[in-house]
Simulated scan of single mutants.
Amino acid sequence: MAQLHVSLPADLQRYVEGRVSAAGFTDPADYLRVLIERDQHSYQADVRRVRLLVEEGIASGIVDREPEDILDDIIADIRNADD
C-alpha cells in the first residue's frame, strides 16, 4: 500500500484526533481513507448523474423554440396549477 504523509496545522490535527476518537476510527489514516472513499463515491455519483442528464437531453431531441418562450410556458403552467 502506498503511503501519503500530510502536514496539518495544529487545530486541524486536534480536530482529526477528536474525530478518530469520537467516531471509532482506528487511527488518523483510517479516518482519511474513509473521507477519500466517500469523496470518490460522491464524485462518481455526480459523474453518473451528469452523464444521465446529458443522455436525457440528447434523447429529448432538438426544440425549435427560443429558451425564453419555453420558460414563459413553464411559468404559466406553474401559475395555472396554483389556481
Rank of each mutant, 00 (worst) to 15 (best):
E55S: 14
E66T: 07
P67G: 12
P9L: 13
R48Q: 13
D69S: 14
A10K: 12
I75K: 14
A2W: 01
I70N: 07
R19P: 01
D27Q: 11
G57V: 01
S7A: 14
L4H: 04
M1H: 15
R14D: 05
V54E: 02
A29T: 05
V6S: 10
S42W: 06
G57P: 01
A29Y: 02
H41V: 10
P67S: 09
I58E: 11
D82S: 15
Y43L: 11
Q13M: 12
I70Y: 06
Q40W: 04
R14F: 01
D77P: 00
I78C: 09
F25P: 00
L52S: 12
E66D: 13
L52M: 07
V34I: 09
D82G: 13
D83M: 13
R49I: 00
V20W: 00
L32P: 00
E56T: 13
I78T: 11
H5Q: 15
I78G: 10
V63M: 11
Y43D: 06
R48G: 04
D73A: 15
A10L: 06
A2T: 06
I75P: 01
Q3L: 10
S21W: 03
V63Y: 09
R49M: 02
I70P: 02
R49C: 00
L35I: 07
D11E: 14
I74D: 03
G61H: 10
D72A: 15
A23H: 08
D77I: 04
V6M: 13
D82A: 15
R38F: 02
R65I: 03
R49L: 02
I75V: 13
D27A: 11
R49Q: 03
Q13P: 01
G24I: 05
V54R: 12
V63W: 06
D11H: 15
D72P: 02
I58V: 12
D46E: 12
S21V: 05
D46R: 15
P28L: 06
R48D: 12
R38S: 05
D30A: 15
T26W: 01
G61Q: 09
R33H: 02
E66L: 12
V47L: 09
P9R: 15
L71S: 11
R51C: 00
S21C: 05
